[in-house]
Computed example of a mutant assay.
Amino acid sequence: MVDIIGHIGMGLIWLTIVGWLAYDGRTALGFVALGIPFSLLPDIDLWLSRAFAGVKHHGVVHTVLFVSVAAVVIGAILGKWVVPWLQRRYLSGSGVGNQYAYGIGAVWVAGLAHLSADILSAPDIADSIEPFWPIYRQSLGIDVLWYNSPLANWGLFLTGLVLTAVLWWQVNDSDSAVTA
Rank of each mutant, 00 (worst) to 15 (best):
2 V>D: 01
6 G>E: 11
11 G>P: 01
14 W>L: 14
16 T>G: 08
17 I>T: 02
18 V>Y: 00
19 G>W: 08
20 W>E: 13
24 D>Y: 00
27 T>V: 15
36 I>N: 10
38 F>V: 06
38 F>D: 06
39 S>T: 11
51 A>L: 15
57 H>L: 14
59 G>D: 13
60 V>R: 12
60 V>A: 15
63 T>F: 13
65 L>R: 07
69 V>P: 08
69 V>C: 11
71 A>Y: 12
74 I>H: 13
77 I>A: 12
78 L>W: 04
79 G>Q: 10
79 G>F: 11
79 G>V: 10
79 G>P: 10
82 V>C: 04
84 P>I: 06
85 W>R: 03
86 L>M: 14
87 Q>P: 00
89 R>D: 04
93 G>E: 10
95 G>E: 13
95 G>T: 12
99 Q>P: 08
102 Y>C: 01
103 G>L: 07
103 G>F: 06
111 G>K: 05
118 D>A: 06
118 D>Q: 03
120 L>E: 04
121 S>Q: 05
123 P>L: 03
125 I>D: 03
126 A>L: 08
129 I>K: 06
130 E>T: 13
131 P>N: 13
133 W>E: 07
135 I>D: 08
135 I>R: 11
139 S>Y: 09
142 I>T: 08
152 A>E: 04
162 V>I: 13
163 L>A: 05
164 T>S: 09
167 L>C: 02
168 W>N: 00
179 T>M: 04
